[in-house]
Design a protein around this nucleic acid. Structure first.
Length: 746
DNA sequence: CTAGGGTTAG
C-alpha cells in the first residue's frame, strides 16, 4: 500500500518537474533570467535536467559565474551538464575556462567535439581545431563541419573554408549561410551574389548576410534593395539596415527603420542610440536613453561614449557614477575621454578603480600615456599586462616611434610574436618620420619575407623614404609593386610617387603619374611644383601655379614655397616679387618664415642685399635661421662683409652648433683679407660647441644602396674612390673651375 | 537540458 502511494506521487510529480524545466529553458532564451531562477528555486525537487536548464539560462544571460556555481552543486552530473557548462564559457568569451573543463571531462560526445572546434577557432588555434576535426570518428555530423567552415571564415581563411565546403557531402542551410558570409566578409560581393543565387534554399539569415555585406562595403543602395526584397524580415534585418544608414550619416533613414520595428529589443534601441551618438546628436541620444524600456551594459557604454565624443566629460563621469553595475566597457570609454583631453591623472583614477580589466582597457590606458609622450609610464603598464594582444604591442611601437625613440620601437617589434600589417606599417613609418630612410626600406623588404603584403600606408612610407634618399632605382621597383598590387588609383600613394620622381629629377615620370591620377589634390600639385622648382625649371613651376588656379584648386602655403623658390633658383626676380605680393593679396595666405627666406634668397642672389635686409626688418614675424642663413650666403656671394656680420651674429644665437654658418662667415672674412678674424672664428666655433656634422652621401648601384660618411673608412673601395676623386679635382683645376678660396675645417 | 550561420559598443 505504502509502495503504491509513493509511486503514484512520483508519477504525479514527474510532469510537473518536466514542465518547469521547460519553463526555465524558455525564460532563459527570452532573457528573463531572474524569473527562471525564481522558478528553479521554488521547485520542490530538482533533477539533473533542471540543473542543466538553469545553468544554460544563467550562461545565456551573461551570468557565467552563477552558472558555474550551480554546476559545482549538481548531485549527479551527466554529459549534457558538462557540455552546457562548456557552451556557457564559450558564449561568455571564456575559452580558457572551457578548455579547462574539457580536459577534466570523463566522457565526450559529438556535442563536445563541436564545441571544442569553436573554442579553438575563437582562440585563433585553427590548426588545433582542424586536427581535432580530422581525428573525429564517423559520428561527425553536419554541425561539426559547419563549425570548422565557420571557424575558417571568421579568421579570414576563405580558401580553406571553400575547400571544406566543397568536400562536405550533405550540406544544409547553415553550411550555405556560413560560406556566404565568407564571401561577404571579404567584400567579394559579386561572387557572393552569384553564390546567393545558386542557393537552393534561403532563409532570413541568408538575406541578412547579403544586406550586411553591402553595408560593409558602403553600397547602401544595394543593401536597401536587398532589405526590401526580404520575404520575412526580422529584427536582425532591421538593425543591420539601421546601422548601415547610421554609419553613412543618414540618421533620418535610420530612424525611419527604427520606427518600423514593432518588437524592439535592447539591441535595436542600442543601435539607434549609437546612431545619434555617431552623428554627435547628443540631445537626441539623451532623450532616447531616458525613453529606453530596458538598458544593458552596451547602452550605458554607448551613452557615456556619446558624452565623450562631444567633450562633455563631466556629464560622462556623472553618468558613469550613476551606473548600477560594473562595466569595463563604459569605464574604458571614460578613460578614453580623459586621454583625448590629456587628463591622464583622472584617466588613471578610473583605471585604478576597475576590478577586472580587460585588454581593451589596458590598451586604452597605454595609448593615453604614449599620446602624452609618457613612454616610461606606458612601458611600466605594458610590462604589468598578463594578456597582451597585438594592439598592445603595436601601441608601444607607435609610442616609441612618435617619441623619436626608434631603437626602443625596434626592440619591442622584435620582441613581439606574430606581427600584423599594422605592426609593420607602424615600424616603417616610424623610421621614415624620424629620417631613418635606409632602415625604413630595409624593413619594407623584411616585411615581404614575413609574408605580409604592403598596403597604402606601407607604400607611402617606402616611397617617401625613396624620395628623401633620391633613391630612384628602389623607387621604380616600388612603383612596379604598387602597380601589381593595384594601388595606382590611391591618391596618397600617387602623391608619394610624384614626389619620388620629382626629387630624383625625373619630371617626365612625375608628370606621367600626375596625369594618371583620377582626381589630384593640392598635395599632388605641390609635389609637382616643388619638383620643377628643385630641378631648376622655374618657369614651368610658375606655369603650373596658373594651371592649378584655372582648375579651381586653391594653392596653399606649400605651393608658394615651391613657386617662390623656383623663381629664386631661376632668377625670375620680378615674377617672384609679384607672386609674393599676390600670395597675400589674392590668395589671403600669410607669409611664413619659409616664404621670407625664399624672398631673401631671391633678392640676395640678384645682389639686391639692401632690399632683402629691408624685407627682413619690416616683417611682422620673427626671423628664423633660414632667413638669416639666406642673407648670409647672399652676402658671401656678393662680398658684403658688414651685412654678413649682422646675419652671422643672429645665426650664432639661433644655431650655435651649425658649422656651415661659421664657414660662410669665415670665408667672407678671408675674402676680405681679414685673417685675424678667420683665426678668432675657429676659437669661437670650438667654444660654441660647434661640431662638423659628417658629410653624408649615397649612391645606388645594382639595386644596392651604398651610403658614404666622410671619414668613415669602412667603405672597402675607399682607395679607388680617393684616386678617382683626386683625378677629377686635377681635371677641374685644368678647366679653372676651382672656387677662389677654400677653407677646410674638417 | 547541450553543438554549427546573421545584429548593437570599446
Amino acid at each position: 500500500m505504502k509502495q503504491g502511494l509513493k509511486s503514484l506521487g512520483e508519477r504525479a510529480r514527474r510532469p510537473l518537474v518536466f514542465d518547469q524545466n521547460v519553463k526555465i529553458t524558455q525564460l532563459g532564451k527570452l532573457g528573463r533570467v531572474e524569473e527562471a531562477a525564481k522558478v528553479f528555486d521554488r521547485m520542490p525537487q530538482h533533477n539533473t535536467v533542471s540543473y542543466n536548464s538553469m545553468i544554460s539560462a544563467y550562461a545565456k544571460n551573461g551570468r557565467v559565474s552563477d552558472a558555474r556555481h550551480l554546476f559545482d552543486k549538481i548531485p549527479s552530473r551527466n554529459l549534457v551538464s558538462w557540455n552546457t557548462m562548456i557552451a556557457g564559457y564559450l558564449h561568455n568569451e571564456r575559452v580558457d575556462k572551457a578548455c579547462e573543463l574539457f580536459d577534466k571531462m570523463p566522457h565526450r560526445d559529438v556535442f563536445t567535439w563541436t564545441l571544442m572546434i569553436t573554442c579553438y577557432t575563437r582562440n585563433g588555434e585553427l590548426e588545433k581545431a582542424r586536427e581535432l576535426f580530422d581525428l573525429l570518428p564517423d559520428r561527425k555530423n553536419r554541425a561539426c563541419w559547419n563549425a570548422m567552415i565557420s571557424g575558417y571564415v571568421k579568421k579570414g581563411r576563405f580558401e580553406d573554408a571553400r575547400k571544406l565546403f566543397d568536400e562536405m557531402g550533405d550540406r544544409d542551410l547553415v553550411s550555405w549561410n556560413s560560406m556566404l558570409a565568407g564571401y561577404t566578409r571579404n567584400g567579394k560581393m559579386c561572387l557572393g551574389l552569384r553564390f546567393f543565387e545558386e542557393m537552393g534554399e534561403r532563409d532570413v539569415v541568408s538575406w541578412n548576410v547579403m544586406v550586411d555585406g553591402y553595408v560593409e562595403v558602403g553600397d547602401l543602395d544595394s543593401a536597401w534593395q536587398f532589405f526590401q526584397r526580404i520575404p520575412n524580415p526580422n529584427i536582425v534585418s532591421q538593425v543591420t539596415m539601421l546601422c548601415g544608414f547610421s554609419r553613412n550619416g543618414r540618421i533620418q533613414d535610420a530612424r525611419r527603420v527604427f520606427d518600423q520595428i514593432t518588437n524592439k529589443n535592447v539591441v535595436s534601441w542600442n543601435a539607434m542610440l549609437a546612431a545619434y551618438v555617431q552623428s554627435y546628436q547628443i540631445d537626441e541620444a539623451v532623450r532616447l536613453f531616458t525613453q529606453m524600456p530596458e538598458k544593458n551594459a552596451v547602452s550605458w557604454t554607448t551613452m557615456i561614449n556619446g558624452y565623450v565624443r562631444v567633450r562633455k566629460l563631466n556629464e560622462a563621469n556623472k553618468l558613469l557614477d550613476s551606473m548600477p553595475y560594473n562595466n569595463v566597457g563604459a569605464q574604458t570609454a571614460m578613460i578614453s575621454g580623459y586621454v583625448q583631453s590629456e587628463r591622464m591623472d583622472e584617466a588613471r583614477q578610473i583605471f585604478n578603480k576597475i576590478g577586472t580589466r580587460d585588454v581593451v582597457c589596458w590598451n586604452t590606458m597605454i595609448a593615453g600615456y604614449t599620446h602624452c609622450r609618457r613612454m616610461d609610464e606606458a612601458l611600466h603598464l605594458f610590462r604589468q599586462m598578463l594578456q597582451k594582444n597585438i594592439v598592445s604591442w603595436n601601441t608601444m611601437i607607435y609610442g616609441y616611434a612618435q617619441a623619436g625613440r626608434m631603437d626602443e620601437a625596434r626592440k619591442i617589434f622584435e620582441e613581439m610574436g606574430e606581427k600584423n600589417i599594422v605592426s609593420w606599417n607602424t615600424l616603417i613609418s616610424g623610421f621614415t618620420q624620424n629620417g631613418l630612410y635606409v632602415d625604413a626600406l630595409g624593413s619594407f623588404s623584411l616585411m615581404a619575407k614575413d609574408g605580409k603584403k604592403p598596403d597604402q600606408s606601407t607604400f607611402v612610407s617606402g616611397l617617401s623614404s625613396c624620395a628623401n634618399l633620391a633613391a630612384l632605382q628602389v623607387g621604380k621597383q616600388l612603383h612596379q609593386i604598387v602597380m601589381k598590387s593595384g594601388y595606382t588609383n590611391d591618391l596618397f600613394v600617387s602623391n608619394a610617387l610624384i614626389s619620388v620622381y620629382a626629387k630624383c629629377g625625373r619630371m617626365l615620370s612625375a608628370r606621367y603619374v600626375f596625369n594618371d591620377v583620377d582626381s589630384v589634390d593640392v598635395i599632388s600639385w605641390n609635389s609637382l611644383i616643388s619638383g620643377y622648382a628643385f630641378n631648376g625649371y622655374g618657369e614651368e613651376a610658375v606655369k603650373l601655379l596658373q594651371e592649378m588656379t584655372v582648375k579651381a584648386i586653391t594653392p596653399d602655403q606649400v605651393t608658394f614655397v615651391g613657386v617662390l623658390s623656383a623663381c629664386s633658383h631661376a632668377g625670375l626676380i620680378d615674377q617672384g616679387l609679384n607672386l609674393f605680393r599676390s600670395m597675400n593679396e589674392e590668395f589671403c595666405i600669410e607669409p611664413l618664415p619659409e616664404h621670407y627666406a625664399c624672398m631673401v634668397d631671391l633678392l640676395g642672389r640678384a645682389g639686391r642685399l639692401e632690399e632683402a635686409f629691408k624685407l627682413v626688418r619690416e616683417m611682422k614675424i620673427e626671423a628664423n635661421a633660414g632667413i638669416w642663413g639666406a642673407l648670409l650666403s647672399a652676402c658671401r656671394i656678393h662680398r658684403n662683409l658688414e651685412l654678413g656680420c649682422v646675419a652671422a651674429e643672429k645665426l650664432s644665437k639661433l644655431e650655435p652648433c651649425k658649422t656651415s654658418n661659421y664657414v660662410l662667415l669665415s670665408n667672407l672674412h678671408a675674402e676680405a683679407g681679414r685673417w685675424d678674424e678667420v683665426e678668432s672664428m675657429r676659437t669661437l666655433m670650438r667654444e660654441g660647441g660647434a661640431e662638423k656634422q659628417p658629410g653624408c652621401s649615397w649612391i645606388e648601384d645594382k639595386n644596392q644602396l651604398h651610403v658614404f660618411l666622410s671619414d668613415d673608412g669602412v667603405q672597402p673601395q675607399l682607395p679607388d674612390i680617393s684616386d678617382t676623386l683626386n683625378n677629377l679635382t686635377a681635371q677641374m683645376k685644368t678647366c679653372s673651375f676651382m672656387p677662389e678660396t677654400l677653407h677646410d675645417y674638417v
